[in-house]
Write a protein that binds this DNA or RNA. Structure first.
Lengths: 238, 238
DNA sequence: CGATCGGTTGATAGGAATCAAAACCAGTGG
DNA sequence: CCACTGGTTTTGATTCCTATCAACCGATCG
């Protein structure tokens, strides 16, 4: 996490200290396990150490919407700290390692590390922009465009942690899960993926995706990267 | 704004002081005016004094997605403080009054009013939950359900400011705008509204909507109110 | 009074859902 | 080594919801 946060701002020793405290404990979960359910009391947040997870919301009739995908270095649970109960289900997309820490630790951050507080705040609101982009994709794009958007968004996020990343990456989600991200069906995800591949924009190989024509994908969905850089000029210096 | 924020927590004098400083200036905009465009430098945030506004994102071919509706008491621009440039267009849905204040004023809040900082933080992440609900609506609901969701969401928000509110409210958005919120077309919004009215769930009268069977609307879209209450137990006391 | 805007209604088209079956693939175990 | 299993992807046929295109109506306004 330190690495991911330091990507955005130079942190004071005090802030770094606070971060370290958040990653004391470590816990493993197997692929497919649901770490918490809607309605549970949420005492903890989590830092992702290893593996992908996602958060989703169900409707009573089984329709499902995945609302966020969590990668190593991410903090899980911010959206819920404003509530007493979880609003989404958290599920491990593969075998994962998490560092749980109590919500109460945040108050320490706010009183003693204003700089870190500002950074967390900035990341929280950045997330709103990301969700907003996502909303535009789900609301106004057709299936091909959504897949394009989905791949570019993932790449932008993965590049933060791994600056050397090429255009090939592992995608540990099946097509049903992807369809639940994009508001489609697994069948149509399959068809759209195949179409993109036939047009030579991407290539797939057991669990990995290679983006062959990134610029064309970008044009396809008007992609703008809101992950890589954020404005830290207004931060307090402490 | 004081009223809206006090709805959630008892604020210290210092916090109240900080809020007052944010509402010194006041500026009027006419219906339809676009207060800022995508790509402009964003030095200011705004507190809404009067009237409705909305933020939207366009695609090059004209498709549009409204990503947020702003009501009196709301702060506009949080999502953008993480960036140097605006990511959405802000537009007045009717004649409005705004209080602009510089982004830099926030640093003062973070260093001197940790309680207010925590509240703003909580509201920012609460917004993520709201966006997430919205995403579920756009991703997995049909037209009728989306309209139901849209109306209930508006009511929940309006009730914060006006606790006595009945089930009738003003809706200063035309059907094209509503379609841009819900990822539909103006034509289909008209049909769906008419259908809901024919079924006796709602009633419309020149610019106002009356919800006749709230519980049925709630069932229709599995609505959960994430506006009314937030958890403030972890806040620092200062 | 013509013009414009917002809402409604009708006819048609199309994109994605749905249903169903087949193909594929990695294990697993006999 | 091969049959068997469960999960995943692919393919095909059909349906349906919503988009699209177009006309019309009513209200408002200069």
């Amino acid at each position: 996490m330190t690495q991911k946060l330091s990507h955005y701002a130079t942190l004071s020793p005090c802030s770094l200290d606070n971060i370290a405290r958040l990653e004391r404990e470590e816990r493993a979960y197997q692929k497919g396990v649901e770490i918490h359910q809607v309605g549970e009391r949420n005492a903890n947040l989590y830092v992702v150490r290893h593996g992908w997870l996602y958060s989703y919301a169900d409707m009573k009739d089984g329709r499902r919407q995945i609302v966020e995908i969590h990668h190593p270095g991410d903090i899980i649970g911010f959206p819920d700290i404003a509530f007493n109960e979880r609003t989404t289900v958290l599920r491990a997309a593969e075998d994962v390692l998490l560092c749980p820490f109590p919500k109460k630790d945040l108050d320490e951050v706010f009183t003693s590390a204003p700089q870190l507080a500002a950074l967390l705040f900035a990341l929280a609101v950045r997330n709103q922009v990301v969700l907003t982009d996502f909303l535009r994709a789900n609301g106004r794009m057709n299936a091909r465009e959504r897949i394009a958007y989905f791949l570019l968004d993932l790449m932008a996020r993965l590049r933060i942690a791994n600056k050397m990343m090429t255009t090939t990456f592992r995608l540990p989600l099946n097509q049903t899960e992807i369809s639940d991200v994009l508001g489609l069906t697994n069948v149509y995800v399959s068809r759209s993926f195949t179409a993109l591949q036939k047009d030579g924009l991407i290539r797939r190989e057991n669990g990995t995706v290679e983006v062959l024509k990134e610029d064309e994908l970008v044009r396809l969905c008007d992609f703008v990267d809101h992950h890589t850089r954020i404005d830290t000029s207004w931060f307090p210096s402490g």
